Amino acid sequence: MSETTIFVVAAILKNAHNQILIVQRPLDKEWGGYWEFPGGKIELGEAPPQALKRELKEELGIDLSLQDLEPLTFFTYQLPEKNVDFSFLF
């Protein structure tokens, strides 16, 4: 088991037609070209909702209210070189 852990938060966002937003990772990044839910790394001192609000504003120009977010689920994905702790909010 790796000793390095990265904390990540992602959003499950649906529109009025019940469509879910996913985004494609930039080709020059790790896992480039793969599809993912919008979000990103949680910075030191941030709680998942604050990190998600920041990431959505930076990456997609979406400005959401923290009271609109609810926790959905979380899990840890183990890679050989690191663990990734995912928190999903909707």
Rank of each mutant, 00 (worst) to 15 (best):
E3P: 07
L79Y: 10
F37W: 10
P26H: 13
Y34C: 12
T5I: 03
V23E: 11
L89N: 08
V23I: 14
V9I: 04
S2L: 02
N15I: 05
K14M: 07
P71H: 02
G45S: 05
A10I: 04
S87R: 12
G40E: 03
A47I: 13
K82M: 07
G33M: 14
E43G: 01
L79H: 10
R25G: 08
P49E: 02
L89F: 15
P49N: 01
I12T: 06
P48V: 02
Q50M: 00
T4L: 14
L69P: 04
P49D: 03
G33V: 06
A11K: 07
E3G: 15
W35I: 09
V23G: 05
N83C: 00
L27Y: 13
K14C: 12
I62H: 04
E46K: 01
P38Q: 01
L79E: 00
W35V: 02
L13A: 07
A11V: 05
I12S: 09
F88T: 07
Q50K: 10
E3S: 13
A51D: 08
P26G: 08
N15M: 09
S87W: 12
P26A: 12
P80Y: 04
F88D: 03
G40Q: 05
L44A: 14
N15Q: 00
G39P: 07
T76C: 00
K53G: 10
L72D: 11
P49A: 06
S87I: 02
K29I: 09
N18W: 14
V84P: 00
N18Y: 12
G61C: 03
F75V: 05
A10R: 03
L66P: 03
W35H: 07
P26S: 13
Q78V: 11
I6C: 06
N83V: 00
F74Q: 12
T5E: 09
L72C: 05
L69E: 05
P38E: 02
D68P: 04
G39N: 08
N83W: 06
E3D: 15
G61N: 02
K82P: 08
P38H: 03
K41M: 15
K41V: 15
G33N: 06
L21K: 00
W31V: 11
G61M: 06
L72F: 11
D68N: 14
K29G: 10
I62M: 08
S2I: 02
A47L: 15
A11W: 01
K29P: 01
I20V: 15
L44Y: 14
I22T: 15
A51N: 04
K41E: 14
D28N: 15
P26L: 09
G32C: 07
A10S: 10
A10M: 03
E3V: 13
F86Q: 02
L89K: 05
S65P: 05
L60D: 03
I6P: 05
Q78L: 12
K41Q: 11
P71R: 01
Q50P: 01
K57Y: 06
P38W: 03
E70P: 04
L52N: 01
T73C: 12
I12E: 12
I42H: 09
E3T: 14
L89V: 00
W31D: 14
E59L: 09
E43L: 07
R54H: 11
P80W: 00
V23L: 10
S87D: 10
V23C: 14
E58V: 06
I22R: 13
Y34V: 11
K41R: 15
P26N: 11
Y77A: 12
L60P: 07
V84R: 04
